[in-house]
Amino acid sequence: MSRFALNVLLASLLISPALYAADVRVEVLQRKLDHPWSMAFLPDNKGLLITLRGGQLRLWQEGKGLSDPLVGIPRVWANGQGGLLDVVLAPDFAQSRRVWLSYAEVGDDGKAGTAVGYGRLSDDLTRLEAFQVVFRQMPKLSTGNHFGGRLVFDGKGYLYIALGENNQRSTAQDLDKLQGKVVRLTEEGKVPSDNPFVNQPGARAEIWSYGIRNPQGMAMNPWSHTLWLNEHGPRGGDEINIPQRGKNYGWPLATHGINYSGLPIPEAKGEKVAGTEPPLFFWKHSPAVSGMAFYNADKFPQWQHKLFIGALKDQEVIVLNVDGNKVTESERILGDRKQRIRDVRIGPDGYLYVLTDESDGELLKVSPAA
Rank of each mutant, 00 (worst) to 15 (best):
L320P: 02
D336V: 11
A268H: 08
Q339D: 08
D314A: 15
R332L: 07
N248E: 10
K313T: 03
E316G: 02
N248H: 11
V317E: 12
A288K: 06
T276S: 12
K338V: 11
A268G: 11
K272V: 15
N259W: 03
G270I: 03
A254Y: 04
E271M: 13
Y249K: 08
S261E: 09
G324T: 09
D343E: 15
P301C: 09
I341R: 06
A274F: 10
H285K: 14
L312K: 02
I309V: 15
S290F: 07
F308K: 05
H285P: 02
A254H: 07
S286K: 01
V322D: 01
M292T: 10
E267Q: 15
L307R: 04
Y295P: 05
I341V: 13
G310K: 05
E329C: 00
I265H: 03
E331R: 15
V327R: 08
V273Q: 06
N259I: 02
E316N: 14
H256V: 02
D298I: 04
F308L: 04
V327E: 04
D343A: 15
P252D: 00
D336Q: 14
A311M: 05
W283L: 01
A274M: 10
I318F: 05
K338Y: 13
L307Y: 05
K299G: 06
T255Q: 01
D314Y: 13
F282K: 00
T255V: 06
E316K: 15
N296D: 14
F308I: 04
P301Q: 07
F281W: 13
G257N: 04
L307V: 07
W303G: 07
S330G: 05
G270R: 00
L280Q: 14
V344D: 05
P301W: 08
L263S: 14
F282V: 01
